[in-house]
Computed example of a mutant assay.
Amino acid sequence: MDASNQRVLVLGATGYVGRHLVERLKAEGYAVRAVVRDRSRAHAMGAYGAPSLSGLVDEWVITSDGATEPDAGVMADVRHVVSALGVTRQKADPWDIDFRLNLHYLELAEQAAVESFLYVGVMHAAAGTSALSRAKYAFMQSLQRSSVPPQIVNPSGYFSDLTEVFELARRGLTFGLGDGSVRLSPIHGADLAKYCVARLPHGAGTWDVGGPEALSFREILRLASDAVGKKPSYVGVPMSLASSALWAADRIGPRIGSLTRFFLEGMQQDSVGEPFGSRTLRDYFVSLADPR
């Protein structure tokens, strides 16, 4: 389908995935309207190698803070909405951002009768007990009931999420929960963006997607150790200690508790999606070890 003259509203445009989505949409010939809080931040390079938005955005919508709710004008002439809007490490309540703010945009999209609303979610959200998982799942349910054709893409995880594993390996700390057999298929942000943009013309659906390889946590730690020239050695932390970590994190504060619960739950079940893309985790870790 010819993307020319098709305007796409991108939510969460300055986040890791949002930046890659904007870059891919522009490359495919879509007109991009991006919602951002800070245009100067948008022009800077993003974290983990995500691109600057300079020259990639046709129209800017500036909101003063993450909870601002634009009026219906934001949907004028929009054909598709793509949302990577959500909380990860920011100091914000997932129910305010992942659920309520996405829901507000969905209501505006329904009024404007846009052709689709694509949401970048997370695998296993229905089973998650963290506020982050529950807020995401609540919005997914609302989207699936919407009059706007829903498109939900659930990645297994991002290469960027595993940067912390690389940093632990650099310090010689190679440990994880249990025996390290839990498998996931992390995906690079650019490959995920390519997958999402390819879905836009094809109507409603829900897709679980990952990168080209399914790896156990042990294998991921070995790749990180190899990249930094350390001898791989895995130390398994008993699963029973996860509840103790949650107890401690909950007493630090609700935000830390929610994030800890979200990541610990992700380390206790396989998250393997449809294989897609060409970028490998080995190459990503090597690029971190030698960023030239």
Rank of each mutant, 00 (worst) to 15 (best):
T280K: 06
Y284E: 04
F262L: 04
L264G: 10
F276G: 02
L259T: 07
F263W: 14
L281H: 01
D283E: 12
F285T: 04
D283R: 15
F262K: 09
R261H: 08
R261P: 03
L288D: 10
F276P: 04
R261Q: 15
R282M: 00
Q269Y: 11
S258C: 05
E274I: 06
F285E: 02
G277S: 01
V286A: 09
E274C: 08
L259D: 04
S271V: 05
S271D: 14
Q268I: 09
L264M: 14
G266M: 08
D283T: 02
R261D: 07
G277W: 00
G273F: 06
S287Y: 02
R282C: 09
M267R: 08
T260M: 13
L288K: 05
D290E: 15
E274Y: 11
F263S: 03
T260G: 03
S278Y: 15
D283N: 11
G273T: 11
S271H: 08
S287I: 05
R279Y: 00
S258W: 04
V286H: 06
V272K: 11
F262H: 03
F285R: 01
F285Q: 02
L259R: 15
S287T: 06
L288P: 03
F263P: 06
F262P: 03
R279I: 03
D270I: 14
E265W: 05
Q268S: 11
S287D: 11
L264D: 10
L288E: 09
Y284V: 01
L259V: 02
L288Y: 08
R282D: 08
Q269F: 07
Q269N: 10
S278R: 12
Q268H: 15
F276V: 01
Q269S: 11
V286F: 04
